[in-house]
């Protein structure tokens, strides 16, 4: 038997696409365990599973919606940031104005070492001790 005979024999025994389709249907009909439930592709949960498998697949309308939503969220976030910055700037300006208007007479008699716990600490430029401030009469004498 030569090679051309082999080829013609192989061509005769070659299964057609239709035969293969039938063969595979029969094969898988007995291959799939009977205990397994039928899979309903239309079930919402199966669709959810499919989206888990192929997250990149999405409709153009859905992606357009998501782009619009993202743009709206970004604009809202920017507006909020601008509002907060504006309020902060106003507060800083008010504080600066107050600081400018406050004169030296407004300074409070507070020791820079006020939190040392010692009463033997000068609280002013004149060397007045914290202990001595207790004796200062705040109410005018009658």
């Amino acid at each position: 038997m030569n090679s051309s005979d082999n080829r013609s024999l192989q061509a005769q025994s070659q299964l057609s696409d239709q035969q293969m389709d039938l063969l595979l249907r029969d094969f898988f009909a007995s291959e799939v365990p009977r205990a397994l439930p039928e899979s309903g592709f239309s079930a919402p949960s199966v669709r959810r599973v499919l989206t888990t498998i192929a997250p990149a697949v999405s409709s153009p309308a859905a992606s357009l919606r998501s782009v619009r939503l993202a743009a709206a969220l970004a604009i809202a976030a920017l507006a909020l940031c601008a509002l907060l910055l504006n309020q902060d700037a106003e507060r800083v300006a008010t504080m600066a104005a107050k600081a400018k208007t406050a004169g030296p007479e407004d300074t409070m008699l507070v020791s820079p070492q006020g939190d040392t716990g010692s009463r033997q600490v000068p609280v002013g430029a004149d060397g007045l001790l914290l202990q001595e401030t207790d004796q200062i009469q705040l109410a005018p004498p009658r």
């Binding site: 291959e31 799939v32 365990p33 205990a35 397994l36 439930p37 039928e38 899979s39 309903g40 079930a43 949960s45 199966v46 599973v49």
Partner: peptide, 29 residues
Amino acid sequence: ACFYRENSRELWAIFYSMCSDPERAHDAV
């Protein structure tokens, strides 16, 4: 049980395509 009903066949098919053994794929599920 609900997840099994809806997905076990698909899981079987994936395992089957890995091992080409129906019983073993079912056992894996």
